[in-house]
Design a protein around this nucleic acid. Structure first.
Lengths: 364, 364
DNA sequence: CTGTTAGCGCATTCAT
DNA sequence: ATGAATGCGCTAACAG
């Protein structure tokens, strides 16, 4: 494999100054608060209350309304939603979204789905990335509670979720995504990890494979554990038992997965097929298969580009990541709309289904 | 290509109720504001100011501090950052991030980079997705300004950016990302679209290709236009001129790119190489090449998984998307830190460099 | 060291 | 239909 690297540009971090020499520190400068309702009121010759009413579209005589709106335009006035919410005793009109790794397409799609639903209800999304770090997660949810988000959606990084209990967050409602609650009760959206892994494994078994290896991430991650459980269950259902020597846990990126797969496949009793718990692992496994010319069949969680064009049979577990975010946002919104008269009731849990897609060895 | 689809789960949207029959509408219910400083003060037998001072870690006698902190713990008190910011005359301690499509890894990486820098400075990121829709962009930036974000990072969807002028947003500082300002002045972070496209094209030319096709997205998108410019410039530098018949503009996903590439390659005078302006287009082009067995060489913007294992030579333009977000956040933070005594000066612009990676036809 | 007064920007309540 | 007073939760500025 040939591979050259070559810088295209010398302007690494060079800062180019625009031609205009204009000083940029006018009314845009920090500390500049912008006009208030009183400014508008003064300009329109009315009281602040009248301005407030105009903006709320309450009953105001057409004439004064026009004067007020004119003043609003002239001053470039914009109502301060922060002050408004404070006065109304409402939270900030935002929902927190805490994910483990936004670089993972699963979580960015989740974020997109949540943002979509939130937006439809006039709520913004405040983002937080934990990098699977518990300390950061604690600090983040605490900060979000202090900023008075209406509620939060959290992909928990840990096994113990007591710090995510609304009772520990000043009553801020919490919905969990991708991983189930532990030591707390909470609305939850999960992916059908168990069923998907089972179905993909069953597929390999149905195609005649009797020697299937397993490539998974850290066993402490819930999704990995569930997928392993599904892998095992499919074997049991076929009256078989997986062999532990063919199980590799721990790889978390393409390179380490490739190494683990090489180790697994480069032996006398190598399995004829491999189940991988996520797409990075599947890509790594494919690299190993390709290098060894072993022709090992692959199955794995998460669909990926070019899966259908690979030169080995690939079965993927596909699902709608956006939908995870959408459902989480909907559960949260229902909690937020909850009143003493119309309680939502105990925590609810929903599972986003998976789909098995079988790609044959795309012939070149 | 064989392909089966199979549902793994019947629990589509089934809602499972947890065993605990406990009513969940306690102090977590919406409308519940949580304890205030006065509540804490009353419990500790001091004034609200003393509580404020304790939380600010100002001089308070050790004895009373302990009493206050005890009350804080007992009540589960959390200072209301919204009210605090209002009182201090500060904005919300958040920065807005408006992108066109969070499902695109480029923008989710950008978001991750921006979040990282923001977090280091105690700022949260408020997310907005425009879907390239100008109306949504207008509404979003307006809403963010009304929510008093400290500033915003925007990937503009349009050619006319006058609605992104801080002057039109109540003075909220704005940094543009991925696309340059138009009809306004603003700090900007760009990718070296021109240089990267030129270098990739030059690479194809250096390898002897004299018939290079071009697959690009809508010409109105700045990045596409710049990449086309780079494509053209590389030709000129070699004393050549691209042929318009080999240019296809408009495809925006893998499928439409494949169709366009098929159309382009399935002709007598088909080009021997293809330059594509993003990775979806490159993937589509690869599918076409593969289907036609044309052996056409590929070059394209954005690196992607498996690029090194394809059975045609592939040259990609790679760059650090996180870095775009990080630089944008830093430019914004410098604007926010600006004072009349220490003005930042006129808008600044920085270009994130690109790198050319040449993958040979990975042998199977 | 601690408390009182006042007010950030806005909207509810009660006037007129 | 409009205005005045009051306070959301918090903290500067000034007492003491």
């Amino acid at each position: 494999m040939e591979m050259n690297v070559h810088e295209t540009s010398m302007q690494e971090a060079k800062t180019v100054v625009s031609p205009s020499g204009q000083q940029h520190a006018g009314p845009s400068g920090p500390g500049f608060a912008g006009p208030t309702m009183r400014d508008v009121a003064a300009r329109a010759g009315v009281s602040a209350m009248t301005v407030s009413r105009v903006l709320k579209e309450q009953n105001v005589s057409a004439a004064t309304r026009e004067r007020v709106l004119a003043a609003v335009r002239e001053l470039g006035y914009r109502r301060n939603e922060v002050a408004r919410n404070l006065r109304l005793g409402r939270p900030s009109g935002t929902i927190g979204l805490v994910v483990t790794n936004l670089a993972n397409p699963f979580y960015s799609r989740l974020a997109l789905g949540a943002e979509q639903i939130a937006d439809e209800h006039g709520l913004r999304v405040v983002l937080g990335n934990t990098g699977e770090d518990v300390q950061r997660e604690r600090a983040l949810v605490d900060d979000l509670a202090a900023r008075r988000v209406d509620g939060m959606i959290v992909v928990p990084a840990t096994a113990d979720h007591r710090h995510l209990d609304p009772a520990a967050l000043g009553g801020t409602p919490v919905v969990l995504a991708a991983r189930p609650p532990s030591r707390i009760e909470a609305d939850t959206v999960l992916v059908d990890d168990f069923g998907g892994a089972g179905a993909a494994t069953a597929r390999l078994l149905a195609e005649g494979h009797r020697a299937i290896g397993f490539l998974g991430n850290r066993p402490t991650v819930f999704t990995g554990a569930e997928r392993y459980r599904g892998f095992w269950a499919a074997h049991e259902e076929a009256g078989l038992t997986p062999r532990e020597e063919w199980v590799r846990r721990g790889p978390h990126d393409i390179a380490s997965a490739e190494a683990a797969a090489l180790d697994l496949l480069d032996r006398a009793d190598a399995p004829t097929a491999l189940f991988c718990t996520n797409n990075r692992l599947t890509l790594g496994a494919y690299r190993a298969v390709r290098r060894l010319h072993s022709g090992t069949a692959l199955a794995g969680f998460d669909d990926f580009d070019l899966a259908d064009l690979l030169d080995v049979p690939v079965t993927v577990v596909s699902y709608d990541a956006d939908e995870v975010g959408r459902r989480a946002a909907r559960l949260l919104l229902e909690r937020l709309a909850q009143t003493p008269e119309a309680p939502v009731g105990p925590p609810r849990s929903t599972v986003v289904p998976t789909t098995i897609v079988r790609y044959g060895a795309g012939g070149a």
